[in-house]
Structure formats: structure tokens, C-alpha cells
Simulated scan of single mutants.
Amino acid sequence: MSSEILARPVLGDIVVGVDGSPAARAAALWAAAEADRRGRSLRLVHAADTDRRAFWADTETIRAVRDAGRDLLTGTADGVRARFPDLAVTQVLSRHEPVAGLLGAAGRHGTVAVGSRGLGGFSALMLGSVGLGVAAGAETPVIVVRGDHERPETGSVTAAVHDAADLDWLPLAAAEADAHKAALRMVSVWNVLTHVGSVASMLDDLDAVARQRVHEMRTLADGVREVYPRSVVVPHVETGTSTPGVLIESSRNTDLIVMGRGRRSLGAEPSLGRVAHALIHHAHCPVEIVPPGFVTGDTDGDRDGDTDGDRDAEGDGKP
């Protein structure tokens, strides 16, 4: 592997959704800490959905929605600045519905953070429809903020690795570990049940498959070390009968889990795989989903995002 193939990524600004729920407030504070670690700015986004509401609501109602959104953003920004006084914080009052508002504010290079439960959630374990829509359809990384955000840092960031194709996003996981001043633990789950009844049904063949998986992980780790030579990169192959179960258990002892989102079939709706779906609903720490083909680089402040709310374009008196 060559460092000419792998580049050291630049982590972008953080965009976080604000809806007044406790999970969103916790996500905003976690996102502020993440932006501070990255040395980037934080965008607080409240999607007022006034474009849609304008079809049935009167001007007074729209104005009240905008005012409530501004108050929510201001209160959240005050809470963030109290903890991170030097952090650059902007407020975006979007006229779009929540998924479009968050993705528009992130642009091509930002990272979207969402709480693990919105105002419409039924259970503390369940991710709201907005979070699912963002995680499944975003073209930039999405972090679902889960777990106890006040627990001490573990000094570990985990990359959930499936195969050699994950090399395209592993440098981003390494960049996260570098920002967290943590080791990168690359975990691959070898599930023997997936080979039962296949051509690798003999024990010797299964041992060969396991050895090949270990060799692949070491090769991937070597590639990451070329980009981050001073980082601690630890490849690890776990055995178990449930890949989601092993990763969920691993999430108890790490600060962040990073994983790639699989490519969807031509014409298919955006969706999450089984493992990603399980992690964003049940992990004990934040989970970062990296979309296929995402390329990081010099974001130049990521000025390509939808920042209409920064200039308060919602306040122009239009319904």
C-alpha cells in the first residue's frame, strides 16, 4: 500500500440538529466538544419546515414558528458557549423539513450530528425518523450521539471493519482517533455461522478463512499507519455468532465507533445495513456512519452549505 493512495483527511465542521428534545441538547453539547477537538466550527440547525407549513398555516402562525425556532437556537448556543467560550458557533434557522435542512447545512464536507431520540420518539433506544433519514441518505458522515456523554473518555476509537474495501474510509476513522488523542482499534467480526454449509465447511478450511481475515486486518492497519505513522493502530478479529452483538458490546469501552455505509443498488431507496441499523439503535457510544465514496479534503470553512439561517433569511416576512 502506498500513501499516494491514502490521504490524510481533513475533518469538517459539525452540523447538529436542534429540536428542543433532551437528546438533541445532549447531542449539541457532544457536537460542540467534537468541533472543539477538530478545531472547526459548530452549526446549530433548527428546521422550522416553514416551506411546507405555508401551504396551510397563516402568516401569524409562521411568524410564531420562526420566533420559537430562533429562541431555541439562541438558548442552545448560549449553553454551548458557556462550556466552549472560544468555539465558533453559528445558528441556522432553516425553512426546510429536518432531513433536508440538516443535509443542506452540512454541504459537501460537514459532519452531521443527531440525537438518538427526537421529540416524536417512543423509546430511549429508538432513533427518530429524522435521524434515520439523515443517516441513510447523507453524502457526508453522520454521527448518531448515543450513550452516557458524561462518562470518562476511554482513549479508544473503534473502526468496525467488514473487508478490504473499507480502506477508503479508514483514514477518516484514524483522523477521528487522532482528534480524540486516542488509539484506533480496528475490529472485524468473524462469524463462523456465515460459512456453515458453504464450500468452507471443513474445519481446516475455516481455519484458513480465519487466518486470511487476520492477514487482511494487518494489511489494512499497515495502510492506515502509512497515513498516521505516530498513531496507535490495533487490528483485532473477534469471533462470535452475531456481528451486531459483538460490536454493541465493544461500544461499552470506546469513545466512538466509525463504520462505512454500504452502497445501495441502482434505483433503490437510501437505507442502512443490518449492522449499522443495530448500532445506531443500541450502541453505548456515538456511532459515525461514513457514506460510500465520501472524499475528505480542505473544506475551506465548508462555505458550500445551506447557511440561509446564518443571515436570518427566514426573517424576511415571507410565509
Rank of each mutant, 00 (worst) to 15 (best):
Ser251Met: 05
Leu170Val: 09
Asp168Trp: 04
Gly155Ile: 07
Pro141Trp: 08
Pro270Arg: 06
Thr76Ser: 10
Ser198Met: 06
His180Pro: 00
Ser265Phe: 09
Ala200Ser: 12
Ser3Gln: 07
Pro286Arg: 00
Pro229Trp: 14
Ala313Asp: 03
Ile257Val: 15
Glu314Gln: 14
Thr219Ile: 03
Thr50Pro: 05
Val192Ile: 08
Thr59Tyr: 09
Thr254Cys: 15
Leu220Asn: 05
Pro286Lys: 01
His96Ser: 11
Pro171Ile: 03
Asp207Lys: 11
Val258Ala: 12
Gly75Met: 04
Pro171Met: 02
Trp56Phe: 14
Gly104Tyr: 09
Asp67Gly: 07
Met186Phe: 00
Gly293Arg: 10
Val92Glu: 14
Pro235Gln: 06
Gly131Cys: 09
Leu103Ile: 13
His109Val: 04
Met126Ser: 11
Leu132Met: 14
Trp169Pro: 04
Ala35Glu: 02
Ser123Gln: 13
Thr76Met: 12
Pro85Met: 06
His215Leu: 10
Gly155Thr: 04
Asp207Val: 06
Arg53Gln: 10
Ile248Phe: 08
Ala165His: 08
Thr90Leu: 13
Arg81Gln: 14
Arg70Val: 05
Thr111Ala: 00
Asp298Ser: 01
Thr76Leu: 05
Pro229Glu: 13
His162Trp: 01
Phe55Gly: 07
Ser201Cys: 07
Ile143Cys: 12
Lys181Pro: 00
Pro171His: 02
Ala182Asn: 03
Glu60Gly: 15
Ala210Asp: 12
Gly110Leu: 06
Leu44Met: 13
Glu238Gln: 10
Asp222Glu: 14
Ala106Thr: 03
Arg117Phe: 01
Val145Met: 07
Glu139Asp: 08
Ser2Glu: 07
Ala35Ile: 01
Gly147Ile: 10
Leu247His: 11
Ala221Ser: 07
Arg66Ser: 04
Val145Ala: 06
Met1Lys: 06
Met126His: 13
Leu103Gly: 03
Arg83Gln: 08
Asp178Gly: 01
Asp13Glu: 14
Leu172Asn: 00
Gly128Thr: 01
Gly137Ile: 03
Phe122Pro: 00
